[in-house]
Every structure is written in C-alpha cells, then in structure tokens.
Design a protein around this nucleic acid. Sequence first.
DNA 1: GGCGGAACATCGTTTGAGAG
DNA 2: CTCTCAAACGATGTTCCGCC
Length: 536
Amino acid sequence: MPPSSSVLPPISWLFLREPSPALLPLEPLCKVSGRDQKNHGRIISYEAKMVSDNSAMNDETKKLSNIMILEPKSKILKNKEMTAFYAECRQRQICLNASIWTKSNFSGMSVGVNMIGEVSLFLGEHGEQYDFTLPAAYARSIISIPWIELGGKVNINCPSTGYLANIIFHTKPFYGGKVNQVTAEVKNETGAIISRVQGEWNNHFEFTYGNGETKTVYVDELPVCKKRVRPLSKQEKMESRKLWYNVTHALREEINYLLLRPKRIREEKPTTKGSYPCGSTRCSTCGIHLPATSFNSKVTKLEYKIPGYYNCKTNNLIYQLQCKSCDAEYIGLTTGSLRQRMNNHRFDTNHKDPDKPVPIHAGTHNQDFQTCYTTKILREFPKQCNSSQLRQWKLAHQWITKSRLPPGLNRRNLFLPNRMSGVPICVLAIYLEVLTELRQQQQGEYSEFWESSRARDKVKEGFDTQTNLCRDRGLNLGPPAQKSDTLPLDSRCIAIIFVGAVLLVTGVGQAVNAPTETFKNMKLAELKASLSTEKL
DNA sequence: GGCGGAACATCGTTTGAGAG
DNA sequence: CTCTCAAACGATGTTCCGCC
C-alpha cells in the first residue's frame, strides 16, 4: 500500500467522532492522579473487548472490531489527571497508544478545553506510525442550553514516510456561519498537496484527490460497532462505568446536582470576574455554585457585576442563595469560606431546623439543600473590614435584592441598624424605596409600624448620621469609586437617589407615612448636593 | 498507614429587636 | 438604659475519604 493510501484512513478515523450532547463531563478511561500503590506506578489493568454483532458490517470492519482490546498505558505522568489507554488489533497489527490531559479556561458564557497529549497510531503491516495532536473542545452557552464544538489546528504526522496532514476545526462565528466545519490538506514528503478535505465532522466530508477524483463520506451511513462491556457488578472501582455510575444514574434520574460532583474538570483562573465553583473533587458547594459574573437588583432592575474572582474557598464575603423553584432568595454574610457556610446551611436543612429560614423554605418544596438552592458570591471584603462594616454591607445587599421582602428569605424587619456610619446615601434611598413598596403592598399591616415614632425616628437617625459619609461610593469599599463598569453599584445608584428624592418630593413619600416637612426638605437638599458633586 | 482536606455535627458568641 | 430572646454566624471536634 503506498503511503498516500495509508495516510488517509487515520484522517478519516480522526474525523469520525460521534457528536455528543454537552451533558456528560469528560470521561476518562482511567483517571490517574499520582501513583497507584498496588501496581507500582502502573495503571490498573482493565480489559474491555469490543465485539460486533452487526452482520451488516464488511469483513474488514469485523476483523478490526472483533479483537479490539483496551489495556492500560504503562507510562504515566505524576500528579497529572489524565486519560490514557492502549488499544490494539493483533490480527491486523494495528495499535493505538494515547494519553490525554486537559487545560481548561472560562471565558464568559463558554468553557474551552485544550486537549494536550499524544496519540500514536501504529500500522504494523506498513511499519508506519502516525502521530496526532488533538483539537480543543468548547462548551458554549454553559448557563443556558450547552452545546459543544471543536476548534483549532490539528496535525497528523508520519515520520517514516514524511507525509503530513494539516487539519483545521473551524469554530462557529459569533454571527452567522455554520457549526462543525472542518478543512484539511494532506501533503506528501515533497510538500505537494495530494488531497484536500472539506465538510462537517459530524455530518459529511469530501476528499478531493490530486487527480481530480472526489469521495464523499457520510457519517450517518457508516457501520456502527455495538460496544460490549463487562457487567457493572463485575467491574472494579476505577473501571469506566463503575467510576461514572453516579453521573449515569443522575442523568437517567435527572438529579442535576449529582452531575456536578464527580471528577470535575480542574479550572484555571477564569478570565472574567465572577463567582465560580472551586472544582475540588469533594466540594459539595460546587454542585450548587454555578458560574456567575453578575447579580440583579429587584429594586433598581439593574444588573451588577461581581467585582472580583471568587470561588468556594473565598473568605469574608456576602453570598446569595437562590431557590431554583421560585423567586425566594437569601443574602448572607460569613467571615469564613463559602464552603463552610454552605456546609452549615446544608446541615441545618438536612435536620429540618424549624427555626431557620433556609431549611424552612427548602421544606416548603420538600427538597434538600442541594436540590433546592444555587449560590453565588456577591462580594468579598478585605480582612481589615470590621464586623460592623460587614453587617452594614450585608444589609445594603439585602435591600437592593429585596431579600427582606416576600418572597425573600431574610428576616422581615426593616428597621435601620443603630450605627449607620459608612452606609452611602444611595443605600438609604434604596431603603426608603423598599419601604415604600412594602407599605403599598401591605397598607394596613405596616401603617402601625410606621406610625410608631420609633420606626420613623430610626430612619431620620439614619440620615442624620450619614452626613459627610461616603460621597456616593455605591457599595464599593475603600477609596472613592472610579467611573468604571467594574465598579458595580456606583453611578447607577445615583438613579436610586432620584427615586428617593422623588419619593420625598412628590408626596409618594406619603406612602411611607410621611417623614416631616422639615425632614423632607433637609434630605432633599442633601440629595441634591450629592448629585451636584457626582459626575454621571 | 499517615496525613490533610472536606463534610458533618454541635455548641458558643454576637447582634438586633422588643419590652419595660 | 438594661434585660431577654431569637436569628445568624463562628469555632471546634469528629468522621470520612483521597492521596502519597
């Protein structure tokens, strides 16, 4: 067989990957991390015979499929999580030797996975070896309906003959374009192009040879070899189906959170600021911690960017628990890690603590903590922040997300804390707006609340003590905010000051049962002064 | 088998609200 | 202003599990 004939089957083989939905995580045949004790550095030996019982296959396919044996690859890299396998067809003297590991990175709504490793196909009959590189895989729209595509350049090289194939997997352009497009050029040892390939790797592709002949391959028409594996009961702990039993079970039962637990891709630092799962194998919080780059305010109807890179291990933070089944949410604060706090909530929920809002709400849906909630980190605080400051910022976040109003899960009281120094005027305006809505919702119930001089005085006290505070720093701590998209609750909150002003001036403030005229005028002047100093 | 990290379980402390 | 109570969080010890 001339090299020009033998170089093409490996290319076909590379293309003929079954397109798969984006539901399953990467499945290793053998997951290797460190040294396996019993085998002294070797991967445990597994055997999976693939026997075809498809009578429609041609003889060559039968020969190949009947004796395909998967064995472990002896060479491993320490401290790398990698997929490694060796497969051979002894009758036809074909063997495949492969080791693959991944580097992944987040970029907004998608995850890119670079497949790094070696794939070598050896054809004993011809004494030729073909070395493959692999395309990158991209999981797009990971927060909505995920889908997968391949991208990047791949080379197939045959050192003994000098033949070379350059393959390009084209990613879909942002606007228009087609998915799964692939092109390739096959060159001989002199560099002359002997064949071109074009098509869709999951549908059909066309080979155009040097003499003008063409050949089209349709993926759907290719014979399918039915895979046979050992029964689950006979598989060892690290065999593929045993290892991935939980994932398979969860898919069948639609238990979403179980899908996120086992063998997660290790994440590099994401490129976009936001709240991300840590990727630790045993971290239960990752199961409810979906990647997020922003959160919404039900008061301002605006979306606020999360201002840093956070994960389950982040300390000193304000977090949000969002019910998957309804609009209920909970804003909490912890000086420990998100993971520690979620463990406490999980414990309370498992024990159906009747005194705590998070377990009570999960109980109303008859769900456990993992099933009921998702979480995200809204903000991390520097360690030098004292507890008083932290509480104020928690309150501020509770107000702008309305988590203190139904159906929010935080406590219902709406009194201002005793010490309000440091809380920006815009946050107080938000507070007024929330209070107004509550008053409109619960006309009778809250009139008594507001009529009590104590409640009214509290608000007045809150405004009185914030003179010369904050200079409208929004929810940003530290130095005065710069005007930037990455500083979330800053100039946008000025709009809320308008709301507060309108409430006070137009008499809508009457809905909260009327601060006094003097109080209104005083606060309006203050609000105007703030606005005049703010560059919108 | 030892070590370290994560989860689990429990209890103590802090804080805020209400009442007097 | 003080006391009481409950919500919320933190701290700590134990258990489990994966890795070396």
